[in-house]
Write a protein that binds this DNA or RNA. Structure first.
Lengths: 358, 358
DNA sequence: ATCGGTTCCGTAAACGTTCACGGACTTCCT
DNA sequence: AGGAAGTCCGTGAACGTTTACGGAACCGAT
C-alpha cells in the first residue's frame, strides 16, 4: 500500500489529463512567435499586431495554456489573492461575513485564502498573518469579533495592509477597521420597543468579550438615555440559548420579568422565549422581545421574531473596497453600513402601564 | 485621489515594516555561507554540519527571513495548499464542513484557498477548478450538496486530484467521493420513531436537488420497509421553514396530520412545528417530530428538538486523509462516518394506536 | 607520503514569467 | 533618396528557490 510512489508531476487519476502544463514557450512555438510576444498578449500590452495577437490567442486555446501564477508572483512581486482571517467559530455573523467576502473578492478577480485561529491569540494571530503573507496575499481582512483577537492583531506586525472588521473597534495607523453600525442596530431595536410604549426594557446582552456584545449593549443604553428612560435590567451572557434560558428561568423565579427585552442575538431570544413560554408568560402578550441577526428560521420561531438584519454583502463589498484602496494607495469613503429592523410578531404595543411604574 | 502611485513593493501603512523581504542570499551573507547551504538547512538536508546549521538558523531568525512560496512552488512544481470548492449557500451543513476542512488542513500544514460557484454550474465549476489549479493547489475538495453541481464536477477536467463530499454520490475514476452516512442518520431517526410505537410516520423531505434530500428520504423509506410498515406521507420541499410551515398548514386543513414526522432538517422541523402549534396540535403530545442537523439552538426550540447530529470534524479529517492519500498515491480506508441520534423532547411514545389504523 | 573515502559546502542550471532594451521593418515627409 | 518616426517583435536579465554535481578539506590506513 505504501511502497507505491507516483512520478513527480503525475497524479493517480485518469481522464482527459494534460501531460505537462504548457508554458509560454510552448505557446510561442505553435504560434510561431517569441515568448516575449506571448507575454505581451497575455498582459495585453499595446505593441502587438492584431494578426499575431489572434494567432497567439488561438494557440493558447489550442494547447490549453494557463498562466503559472507562481512564476508571475515571483517576478512581479504582487499577488492576486487576498487573505481572510477569522476565529474558528461557526457563529452566524462571522461566517456570513466570510462567505460574502469570498464572493466579492472572486468577482473582483481575487482568490481568497482563509485561515482561522485558535485560543492563545497572541501567538496564533501573528503566525497566521505570517502564513498568509507567505502565500503571497496582497492584503488581509480579519474578521475579529473577539476583542482579544483584535488586540492580538493590533500587536502583530505585517508587511501587507491589514483591515479588521470589528464593530466599534478603533483604527490604528497599522490596521484600520471597518464594520456595520451595530450600535445603530441596537438603537433601532430599542427605539422600536420604546415606540411601542414600553418603559421597562431589559437587555439580555451578549458576551463582553465580543465587540458585538459591547456595542449592542451601548446602543441599548443610548436609546434608553435619549428617551429619558431609566436603564432597565441588563444581564450579560455568552450568546447561547442555554444561558438565556437559564437566566430567563431565574428572572421568573425571582419575579423580575421585564415588560420588554432586547436580546443581543436571535439565539439568545430563542432561549429566553422558551423560559418564558414554559412558565406561562406569553410572548408577545406579556413580554415583547426583539432579537438581533435575523438568522435563518427566526421568521418561524414561536412567535416569529422581530429582529435586526445586517447586510453582509454590503459590508463585504465596502470592506473589500477599503482594502483594495489601501493596497493601491487610494483613500476611500468609510461610512459604516446601517442595519435594518425587521418587525414581526414577537413585539407588540404595551397594553397596561408598566407594573413597575410608581 | 487617483494620481497617487505607490512605489512597487511598498505599501501605505506604517509600523514595524521590513523594507524588503529578505532572501536566501541575505541569510547566506550574514551567516557567512553560500545560499546553497542555507537551502539545505531550510529543507533539512543531511549534508550540513551542526555548527553551520546553527549559524544559519540564527541568521534566519535575526533578519526575519521567510521562505518565498512562489519561488519554491515554481521550482518544485508541487504545492502546499489545497483548494476548497463549494456552492455559495450559507446552509448549515456545507458551511460546517468547510470550516472543519480548513481546520484540519491547517493542522496538516496546508493552506486552503476557497472559492464558491454560482448557478450555471456547467461553466462556473470548470472555471473555478481552473482558477484553483492556477493558484497551485495540490488537490481539491468540493463540497457538493447539489446534484447539479456534482454532475458539473463529473464533467469537468482537472489536473490535480478532486474529491467530492456528496452524500451518496458515487465515485468515478476521475473524482472520488466521500461523505457522512446520512442514510444511516435518517434510518436512526425513523427507527427511533418506530421504537416509540409510531406506525404512521411521515417525511417532510428536503429538496431532491440535493443529495442530502435524496439520501435522507431513502433512509426513511428503508427504515419503514425494514419494519414492515407502509410508507407514510412524503412531501418534498426546499429545506425552508416557510415551505414546511405552509405545507404543515395545508395538512391540518386537510385533516392529514400524521402521528409522527421525520423532518429532513431542523429548519424544516421548525416551520412545521409552528404550523402545528398555531393550530392547537401539540408537539410532542399529538405528533412527534424529529429533525436533522442539530443546528445551534435546536436544543432550545419549543419543544427542544430530537434530531441527528453529524460530526463535521470527523468528516473533514477523513476526507482530508483521503485527498492527501490520492495526492501521494496512497490508498486509504473510506468507510463513511456515522451520525448520531440525539433524543430530546419533541418525540414521545405513541399513546393511542394510530387513528389511521383500520 | 599517497590514496580512497567521508563530510561538508559552493556552483550552475532550471522553473515560467515580466519587463526594459534595442533592432528590423515599414511608412511618410522633405 | 535619405532620414525620422512608428510599429512590431525578439533578446536577455531578473525574480527566489531547489537540486544535481563537483570539489576542497580532512580522516585513517597502507
Amino acid at each position: 500500500m505504501s511502497g507505491i510512489t507516483v512520478p513527480r508531476g503525475a497524479n493517480g487519476h485518469t481522464g482527459p489529463t494534460l501531460r505537462r502544463k504548457p508554458t509560454i514557450n510552448d505557446v510561442a512555438e505553435v504560434a510561431g512567435v517569441s515568448f516575449g510576444t506571448v507575454s505581451r498578449v497575455l498582459n495585453n500590452a499595446p505593441d502587438v499586431s492584431a494578426a499575431t495577437r489572434e494567432r497567439v490567442l488561438q494557440a493558447i486555446k489550442d494547447i490549453g495554456y494557463r498562466r503559472n501564477r507562481a512564476a508571475t508572483a515571483l517576478v512581479t512581486n504582487r499577488s492576486t489573492s487576498i487573505g481572510l482571517l477569522s476565529d474558528g467559530s461557526p457563529r452566524f455573523g462571522p461566517v456570513g461575513t466570510l462567505m460574502a467576502l469570498e464572493n466579492v473578492a472572486r468577482k473582483k478577480g481575487y482568490a481568497t485564502t482563509v485561515i482561522s485561529v485558535e485560543k492563545p491569540y497572541d501567538q496564533s494571530v501573528q503566525a497566521a498573518l505570517d502564513t498568509l503573507d507567505d502565500t503571497g496575499v496582497g492584503g488581509i481582512i480579519v474578521v475579529a469579533p473577539l476583542v482579544d483577537m483584535a488586540s492580538a492583531v493590533w500587536n502583530a506586525s505585517c508587511r501587507v495592509p491589514v483591515e479588521m472588521i470589528a464593530a466599534g473597534a478603533s483604527s490604528t495607523p497599522k490596521v484600520f477597521t471597518y464594520s456595520e453600525n451595530q450600535e445603530l442596530g441596537a438603537r433601532l431595536a430599542t427605539q422600536h420597543l420604546i415606540d411601542l410604549g414600553h418603559t421597562d426594557i431589559a437587555h439580555f446582552a451578549g458576551s463582553m468579550d465580543w465587540f458585538d456584545g459591547r456595542v449592542r449593549k451601548r446602543g441599548w443604553e443610548a436609546a434608553l438615555g435619549d428617551a429619558g428612560l431609566p436603564p432597565g435590567l441588563c444581564v450579560e451572557g455568552d450568546w447561547s440559548p442555554r444561558w438565556a434560558y437559564e437566566t430567563g428561568l431565574r428572572l421568573v423565579r425571582e419575579g423580575k420579568v421585564p415588560q420588554a427585552v432586547f436580546a443581543a442575538s436571535d439565539h439568545t431570544a430563542l432561549g429566553l422565549i422558551r423560559a418564558f413560554t414554559e412558565n406561562g408568560i406569553r410572548v408577545p402578550e406579556d413580554v415583547s422581545v426583539v432579537g438581533f441577526d435575523d438568522i435563518e428560521g427566526s421568521d418561524y420561531f414561536l412567535p416569529p421574531l422581530t429582529t435586526v438584519r445586517q447586510d453582509f454583502t454590503a459590508l463585504a463589498l465596502m470592506s473589500m473596497e477599503v482594502l483594495l484602496g489601501a493596497m493601491e494607495g487610494r483613500e476611500v469613503d468609510r461610512t459604516p453600513i446601517a442595519p435594518t429592523l425587521v418587525v414581526r410578531e414577537s413585539s407588540i404595543r404595551a397594553t397596561s402601564p408598566s407594573q413597575k411604574d410608581t
